[in-house]
Computed example of a mutant assay.
Amino acid sequence: MADDKEREGTELVIAEFHKKIKDAFEVFDHEANNTVDRDRNNYQVTRVLPKRMESCMTLIVEVEEEEPTGYIRFEKFLPVMTKVLLEKRYRPIPEDILLRAFEVLDPSKRGFLTKEELIKYMTEEGEPFSQEEMEEMLSAAIDPESNSIRYKDYIAMMVVDDG
């Protein structure tokens, strides 16, 4: 009986990981064909996580085709990332830290940033995003109806529970 409950719990964790992995993968799957451009998207990952560049490169090699095409297919990416998450190889940034970072940009505590504010912060502050990187983030983060990012919802979509 305990084994059944444990198995069900593991299956739920894996299902949640699969959903989060798929959601994150789709942000970079610009042609909606279950592939991402290895070089273009690896640059973005390693730019954000420079200390883990070697680890990122190793992970990319694990999911790339036997004969490199420059693209990573979702069906190869999913099992590798699931294993990484189950093994807790990389410690995710806690949700509360991400929330505090967004709240610094939103001193009025409105719970959102406008598209214009987000563009200003991401292109004029710190290490600026390129136009292409900005467009990718906007396509994933901005609600087209309100033309803003409700950052709590965005964080919830992007964070994998480390529980």
Rank of each mutant, 00 (worst) to 15 (best):
A2G: 08
D3R: 06
D3M: 11
D3Q: 09
D4G: 02
R7P: 00
E8S: 11
E8F: 11
L12G: 03
I14Q: 05
F17H: 07
K19H: 07
K20Q: 04
I21V: 15
D23R: 12
D23A: 14
E26I: 08
V27S: 11
V27C: 12
D29H: 11
E31W: 13
A32Q: 12
N34R: 11
D37F: 06
R40C: 07
N42Q: 11
Y43A: 06
Y43G: 01
Q44F: 00
Q44K: 15
Q44W: 05
V45N: 06
T46K: 03
R47P: 03
V48A: 06
L49M: 06
P50Y: 12
P50L: 09
L59Q: 04
I60R: 04
V61I: 10
V61E: 10
E62Y: 09
V63C: 13
V63D: 03
E66H: 12
P68S: 03
T69E: 07
T69K: 10
Y71N: 09
F74M: 02
L78Q: 06
L78R: 15
V80F: 01
K83F: 03
K83T: 03
L86D: 01
L86R: 09
E87L: 09
R89Y: 03
P92I: 02
P94K: 11
E95V: 05
E95F: 03
I97E: 15
A101R: 14
A101G: 14
F102A: 05
F102K: 11
E103H: 02
E103I: 11
L105R: 12
S108A: 11
R110S: 13
G111P: 02
T114N: 08
T114G: 05
K115V: 11
E116K: 14
L118Q: 02
K120D: 15
Y121A: 15
Y121K: 06
M122L: 14
T123Y: 00
E125V: 15
G126M: 00
G126S: 00
E127N: 05
P128V: 13
S130E: 02
E133A: 12
M134V: 10
M134Q: 04
M134S: 08
E136D: 11
M137Q: 10
S139A: 13
S139N: 12
A140V: 09
A141K: 07
A141E: 07
D143R: 00
P144Y: 05
P144L: 00
E145M: 12
S146W: 04
S148L: 00
S148M: 06
R150I: 09
R150D: 14
Y151G: 06
K152N: 12
Y154W: 02
D162V: 09
D162M: 14
